[in-house]
Design a protein around this nucleic acid. Structure first.
Length: 570
RNA sequence: CGGAGUGUGGCGCAACUGGCUAGCGCGCAGCGUUUGGGACGCUGAGGUUGCAGGUUCGAGUCCUGUCACUCCGACCA
């Protein structure tokens, strides 16, 4: 490719709102342009990397025997209604109507469609496991897209689906995808941590997120420094040790308490006890207006996802002041027991502290030496709090949890029969009986992969593409091109490299200074820079420089092809 | 969805309390001089200041509404 003909120029300035390095660099180097929030065009340079990501994923799927196909982008609404997910995804889905009045969803993920497709062939146990995938644009109206390509509303995703006869077969198939994902991450040069996650709106039980560490990432996860297990925040079990092992239960008391004691800080000021010694109540309501009170230790935060999962609810909102009034209470006065027609859910940590303070606050009084099991008791007791950095690991009980930030690169789900049952996606077993298929789904975002690579491979001058993802193998720079001999030299080299099957970007601009060409080459980030100039010819060859190295060397022209190929071999 | 903020040629910005023909840099086009780390000179093209309405002799500037975009939070594959 001649640089002078390349569509998409580099730029010295970046939009002032770009915060992430990948956003800035991909923009500056002319790989991408935005049309509206979370919707991007890929320019020719970006497209070349995109294509390589495609091919790498395709090869890996081929290698593990997963077959490629494609389903329509517009999903009939009825398919989504079968699993009620038109409501679960809620505002994140775009619903459109065609000219005939038929309603469709712009597909945000395709489990339902794939299940319908599989049904069309009434599979037998002999066909299982059935493993298929597609590349297709996904549409999710993210509330807050951010970071350039990192979180968007429209994106290309590789989504794979497996359909299995039983749990055992599924586990084997799932493991195959899991291993393939680890290999793919390695091929992309991404260090991933696999964390146990909640499967959220996709549905199902278990899932693994493949997370790339990034300080500005919006996924929080925890790793145990002993057993090495990792969970994301929504899934991480919380360990609440016995904090008062040597204390005895004292008699329940109502005591005087000044009215100003309202918040946790006030409590500490007044009683001089650590925060875990108080009772804390957080009030929620579901979409039907039903009220739930989550009761936890004063030093802990309610994890809404855990609470929702426990209550089997899709939606939970904080209660408003008006809701509290209806309950006959107000902010700061919510009792840990006794309020009628609400559901109390306690955190298991309540059983590990003796003699709580609080729970029954009135204007001038409060309760003291309150004990769970004796003074109050709930029908629901579960793990509903956030794990915290430094907590003891609830599983091995030996290590400590370390909190980390990252960006989700891929996700594998064990969805079980979440779709198969309501959609009647079945197979016939050896006995001729109809059985529901055990499903899984596995996704990788193409654009996000690309951005994550840039996040991890760049320096102050620009991108440093890994060898297997670079838009071109060689960035050929011609200097002194007004000299016809040098120009011819550079051109013949350009042709020669191409003939050898190498992808070459040739900066053939005659009216551009050397400095600008160097700066552009660094910004675009192709791993090898080959320079032809008056000086290089005087020195007997061409200048060869690796993007990530400081120094260059002169090599003879007839050695060039071999050197380049050698470089790309490793 | 809550909080904060921003909209001025393709990009980055300026225009003080309302005041003259809305400026500057980059980029783009032409000519010339340059050419090893983002050169320089001259010339030129490109804007109904996001949109709608209002106040005023006069609005980029003030008011109302609206739209878009960004950041923080909540949520989320």
């Amino acid at each position: 490719m001649l640089y002078s003909r390349l569509f998409g120029k580099t730029q010295k300035t970046t939009p002032s709102d770009a915060a992430m390095p990948s956003h800035k660099l991909l923009y500056k180097a002319g790989f991408i342009r935005r049309f509206s929030t979370g919707r991007w065009s890929f320019l020719p340079l970006g497209m070349r990397v995109w294509k390589k990501i495609f091919e790498i994923i395709e090869q890996e799927m081929d290698a593990i025997g997963v077959q490629r196909l494609v389903v329509p982008t517009l999903h009939p609404l009825q398919i989504w209604e079968k699993t009620n997910r038109d409501k679960v995804f809620g505002e994140e889905i775009t619903v459109i109507e065609d000219h005939y009045g038929q309603t469709f969803i712009l597909g945000p993920t395709a489990e339902g469609m794939m299940a319908e497709l599989v049904k069309m062939f009434s599979p037998s146990y002999k066909d299982l496991p059935l493993e298929i995938y597609q590349f297709s644009s996904k549409f999710r109206d993210e509330k807050r897209p951010r970071g350039g390509l990192l979180r968007v509303r429209e994106f290309m995703m590789k989504d794979a689906y497996n359909f299995c006869a039983n749990e055992k077969q599924f586990e084997k198939s799932y493991q195959k995808f899991y291993d393939a994902y680890l290999r793919l991450a390695q091929t992309f040069g991404l260090k991933v941590t696999t964390v146990l996650a909640d499967s959220g709106a996709i549905g199902g039980a278990i899932s693994h997120e493949f997370i790339v560490d990034n300080e500005k990432g919006d996924d929080t996860y925890f790793v145990c420094d002993h057993c090495k297990q990792a969970w994301n925040q929504e899934k991480c079990p919380s360990y609440r040790p016995d904090l008062t092992p040597n204390e005895k239960e004292k008699d329940f008391k109502i005591i005087d308490q000044p009215q100003w004691v309202m918040t946790m800080e006030d409590n500490i000021k007044h009683y001089g006890q650590p925060t875990w010694h108080y009772l804390k109540n957080v009030v929620y309501k579901d979409h039907e207006g039903k009220i739930y009170i989550a009761s936890v230790r004063g030093d802990q935060d309610v994890n809404e996802t855990k609470l929702k999962r426990y209550l089997k609810l899709n939606h939970l909102d904080p209660a408003t002041d008006a809701d509290l009034e209806k309950m006959g209470t107000k902010h700061g006065y919510v009792h840990s027991w006794g309020i009628k027609s609400v559901t109390y859910v306690g955190d298991e940590g309540l059983t590990k502290v003796k003699n709580f303070i609080g729970g029954q606050k009135a204007d001038q009084t409060a309760s003291k030496t309150v004990n769970y099991g004796r003074d109050f008791k709930y029908d629901h007791l579960a793990d509903i709090v956030d794990a915290k950095d430094g907590d003891i690991c609830a599983i091995c009980k030996k290590g400590k949890l370390k909190e980390k930030k990252g960006i989700e690169w891929g996700h594998t789900f064990n969805i079980g029969h979440f779709y198969s049952k309501p959609q009647k996606c079945t197979f016939t077993n050896q006995k001729g009986q109809e059985k529901s298929l055990h499903m899984g789904s596995h996704g990788i975002g193409v654009g996000r992969s690309l951005a994550l690579v840039v996040e991890n491979y760049h320096d102050k001058n620009g991108i440093c593409w890994p060898k297997n993802l670079t838009p071109y193998h060689v960035h050929l720079l011609g200097l002194d091109l007004s000299d016809t001999k040098i120009k011819k030299d550079a051109e013949s080299l350009y042709k020669k490299l191409q003939k050898e099957g190498l992808e070459v970007l040739f900066d053939d601009r005659e009216d551009t200074t050397a400095g600008e060409k160097f700066a552009d080459a660094d910004l675009i980030g192709i791993p090898l820079r080959i320079l032809v100039s008056k000086r290089s010819i005087e020195n007997g060859g061409v200048e060869y420089k690796e993007r990530t190295k400081k120094e260059s060397k002169v090599i003879k022209k007839d050695k060039l092809v071999k050197t380049v190929k050698e470089f790309y071999k490793n």
